[in-house]
């Protein structure tokens, strides 16, 4: 199964690609239109900044949106998830607007970045979170979080504020944590995502 990982910036994409490969996928980190068209699934990784990632994605934007609309399973991770929204306090740029809402900075009274293991509290059961236990720990590394303007939360996490740590409008899903760095739980979520893509 071919997985298009958007090359949105510099950072650790290696771990994500390794995890997807281990789960049986064939990931390619790229911005090529050909790769996007041939892909069975799309992943927007958590690297770069809101503005720089959008700039890099700009030439692909209409094709990316078309692919998602035509049903390609899509997963946004951390910053990749934040790109799904209209705008972000991190920087200028019009987001992909796959999900209704905006991205804001964590409240001042908590330490930012939010670094470390925090829990997932289920909002609703979906195929993406199958086998993921209530209250399990996943790894976060971020300073911004999305505020939803539609009821698409799948799980929530609290850190100074309660935010949607997983949201989805199948076949598009976003996660604020790093599943590729969240031990067995994270691998389960990635595996569920690939399961969706196989269907």
């Amino acid at each position: 199964m071919k997985i298009f990982i958007a090359a949105t910036g510099v950072g650790n994409i290696h771990s994500l690609a390794t995890a997807l490969r281990r789960l049986g996928g064939e990931p390619e980190v790229t911005l090529s239109l050909r790769a996007l068209r041939e892909a069975d699934a799309i992943v927007l990784p958590g690297v770069g900044s809101f503005s720089s990632a959008l700039r890099r994605l700009e030439p692909l934007r209409p094709h990316l949106l078309e692919a998602v609309e035509s049903g390609a399973p899509t997963l946004g991770i951390c910053l990749g998830y934040q790109l799904f929204f209209r705008e972000s306090e991190e920087g200028p740029g019009r987001g992909l607007e796959l999900f209704k809402g905006r991205v804001v900075r964590l409240p001042k009274h908590v330490k930012a970045p939010h670094i470390g293991w925090n829990t997932l509290e289920r909002v609703k059961q979906t195929p993406l979170t199958e086998g993921v236990e209530e209250g399990c720990f996943v790894y976060f590394l971020h300073s911004y979080y999305p505020v939803l303007e539609e009821q698409i939360a799948i799980a929530e996490t609290t850190y100074g504020v309660t935010f949607p740590s997983i949201a989805g409008k199948p076949p598009a899903y976003g996660v604020q944590f790093h599943p590729e760095r969240s031990g067995q739980v994270g691998l389960r979520i990635l595996s569920n995502f690939l399961g969706e893509a196989r269907r």
Binding site: H14, S15, T18, Y139, L141, R181, G183, Q184, L187
Partner: peptide, 11 residues
């Protein structure tokens, strides 16, 4: 770093 990243699933 590359080998460790391939081996483990924590940061």
């Amino acid at each position: 770093a590359r080998r460790v990243a391939e081996e483990i699933s924590i940061p």
